[in-house]
């Protein structure tokens, strides 16, 4: 992927973010920025504090201290505004299994207040992009996992959010589906959307413009994949990860 692109304005700013649960420090003084239109990889072992950070950034949880802005809004006081301006996709590709593709789109369109007139044409565009137009009246439960994944992403970005959070969006699908899914991500980024993604697949980390690696609540590395590999003198992200997270 591209090296450090010309820096645009930051859409996520995190300064001295701390989150404590009692005596346990889940996020220990995090500092980073995410820029408009980039794919930001958020890596780290399980329990490193990724989920806690994502919860704060998506307005679900209030940090203990720190100065954090998402899409220009404050995470302490403007969580409602943050929620309206972000998209979120979880590792479960959470769609309603007993509803059709169309009904799922309509529901989320309603929740994000997409204007009534625009829903159908935009849905058709989104379905055309993933090649599922003729299945729009199928129940989600009848679809293969790879399709659900694509649909979950289409729905997470349906209201054109400035930022979309992807929490392990490729877990459990085959390599071909994973590759296809990343194509879908690249297309979305070209439209100016910022992608904030967590993953455990190190080949996917290579697709990111920049990655941060968390360990025990701290960010221990943050740069483009190539710069990081050079700095740590390794050939691939997998070795890098092992070297850093020990």
């Amino acid at each position: 992927m591209a090296e450090l692109q010309t820096r645009t304005e930051p859409v996520i700013t995190v300064k001295n973010m701390v989150k404590k649960f009692g005596g346990f420090v889940a996020n220990d003084n995090l500092n980073f920025e995410v820029f408009k239109g980039e794919i930001f990889g958020f890596l780290g072992a399980n329990g490193a504090g990724k989920t806690t950070a994502i919860k704060i950034l998506s307005g679900l949880s209030i940090p203990t201290s720190g100065e954090i802005k998402v899409a220009g809004f404050d995470v302490y006081t403007q969580t409602e505004l943050i929620k309206r301006n972000i998209g979120y996709m979880s590792q479960k590709f959470s769609l309603y299994e007993d509803l059709t593709i169309k009904e799922n789109f309509r529901f989320y369109a309603g929740v994000y207040r997409v204007p009534q007139k625009e829903i159908m044409p935009r849905m058709m565009d989104a379905l055309a992009e993933v090649g599922l137009i003729k299945y729009k009246d199928r129940l989600i439960s009848d679809l293969p996992l790879g399709w659900k994944q694509k649909l979950a992403f289409s729905i997470a970005t349906f209201h054109n959010p400035g930022i979309v959070f992807l929490d392990e969006p490729t877990s459990g699908v085959d390599p071909v589906a994973r590759r296809n899914f990343w194509e879908q991500i690249f297309k979305t980024v070209q439209k100016g959307t910022t992608v904030f993604v967590t993953t455990h697949y190190m080949d996917e980390a290579e697709y990111c413009n920049r990655v941060s690696i968390m360990d025990k609540g701290k960010i221990v590395a943050l740069n483009s994949p190539n710069m990081l590999k050079a700095a740590y003198k390794v050939d691939n992200m997998f070795d890098l990860f092992l070297k850093i997270v020990r």
Partner: peptide, 13 residues
């Protein structure tokens, strides 16, 4: 159980 609650909570609902 299905994880849709997570999505609902992140949404403006």
């Amino acid at each position: 159980e299905l994880g849709t609650m997570e999505i609902l909570l992140v949404s403006p609902l």
